[in-house]
Amino acid sequence: MDERTIQGSRIAIDAALKRFAEWGAKNLIKVTNIGPVQEELRGYFGFMQSVAGQTPSEISRTFGLRETDLAQGAMIYRLARIPLENEFVVRGYTTLPDGLRLPEGQIKDAAGYRVGTGALQYALTKPFPVTYLGLLRPHQGFDIRTIAP
């Protein structure tokens, strides 16, 4: 069975929804490059606990982002609520760029996304409401209590 079949299975979706409910929306985060503050975002998100204490470059590595992503720092957002089943897709772990296994010996996909360290990853499939938590400077470790607004 291929990755997309597994990720789209009822078991994977139900497990994600259960995990979201257990941890709550306050623990679901979206990390972006520095730019204008957004009220809605789409794309990949994960759990705050996966990157607690990490600097932007460490977060980039954990999530398997491109080497230049987050070089200037990171903007941290919290999902405003738990996504509904039709608002996200499961993408396994960050060891799978875009949720897909890379060919043997390859460490980046065609878009430059690297193999991450194994954090759970999901993708928002449509613009989703978020709350801006603050800016994480390049050498600052992520701590929800001290992030700059």
Rank of each mutant, 00 (worst) to 15 (best):
K26V: 01
D98N: 12
K30I: 08
A74G: 07
N33W: 02
F47N: 04
L17K: 00
A25M: 03
E67T: 11
M75A: 06
D69Y: 11
M48F: 06
L79E: 02
D109T: 15
G35M: 08
V51W: 06
I29S: 00
V37S: 05
Q54E: 07
L79A: 04
V89L: 03
P36L: 10
Q72D: 01
M48N: 10
P36W: 03
A52R: 12
A52L: 15
W23V: 13
E22C: 10
R101P: 04
A21Q: 12
A25V: 05
D69P: 08
S50Y: 08
E58C: 05
S50L: 14
K18A: 14
R42A: 10
Q54W: 05
R66K: 14
I76S: 04
V31S: 00
V37D: 02
S60H: 04
E67W: 03
D98T: 11
T55C: 11
V31G: 00
K18Q: 08
Y77Q: 07
Y93L: 15
S50W: 06
Y93H: 10
Q106S: 14
R91M: 10
A111R: 12
I29N: 00
R78D: 11
T62Y: 13
R19I: 10
E40L: 02
V89S: 07
P83K: 02
F20Y: 06
I34H: 00
Y77C: 15
W23A: 14
G43Q: 12
R61K: 15
W23E: 14
R66W: 02
L70A: 07
S57A: 15
N33F: 01
A16Q: 00
L84N: 08
L28S: 04
N86V: 08
A110V: 05
M48K: 14
Q54D: 07
L84C: 03
E87H: 03
L100C: 04
I59C: 04
V51I: 15
V31E: 00
Q106V: 09
R101F: 04
I82A: 01
Y93T: 15
G24W: 07
L17P: 05
A110T: 05
T32S: 03
G46N: 06
L79S: 06
A71L: 03
S57V: 11
A110F: 14
R61S: 09
V90K: 01
Q106L: 05
A111V: 07
F88P: 15
R42V: 02
E104V: 11
M75R: 00
G53L: 12
G24V: 09
S50R: 09
T68R: 11
T62V: 15
V31I: 12
D98E: 13
L17I: 04
Q49V: 13
G92P: 04
V89M: 03
E87L: 03
L17H: 01
T68E: 12
G53E: 14
T32R: 01
M75V: 04
E22V: 15
Q54N: 13
T68A: 13
E67P: 03
E39G: 15
G99Y: 01
F45T: 13
R81D: 03
R42L: 10
S60T: 03
Q106T: 09
K26S: 13
E104T: 11
R101G: 06
R66S: 06
N27Y: 09
G46F: 01
E39F: 06
G43I: 13
R81H: 03
Q72N: 09
G53A: 15
A16P: 08
K26P: 05
E22H: 11
E67R: 06
